[in-house]
């Protein structure tokens, strides 16, 4: 298993509804990654604002994304390749 730290801002197509968010696909380095499943999610309320974190599945690979409410920006944190 290979874990790669990324830490780059990404463009995400997401659905915000009923107080929850769901990333549907994201664009990173010019390529579009369709989300096939959301493995888990958590909210980090430490500090200013909050961050919505997601572990999402794209094929065999797992991507960690988060949305920062202060920056109003999505970030790709890490990729796990089995």
């Amino acid at each position: 298993m290979n874990i790669e730290q990324i830490g780059e801002s990404v463009r995400v197509l997401a659905s915000f509804s009923g107080g929850s968010a769901e990333p549907l696909q994201f664009e990173w380095s010019g390529r579009v990654y369709p989300v096939s499943a959301i493995n888990g999610r958590w909210i980090d309320r430490g500090g200013e604002g909050y961050s919505l974190h997601f572990s999402v599945q794209v094929g065999e690979e797992t991507y960690f994304l988060h949305f920062s409410s202060v920056q109003v920006q999505w970030w790709l944190d890490q990729v796990v390749v089995p």
Partner: peptide
């Protein structure tokens, strides 16, 4: 359990 939840390959 958290690690296994977030990374299905685990």
């Amino acid at each position: 359990s958290v690690e296994q939840l977030l990374v299905p390959s685990l």
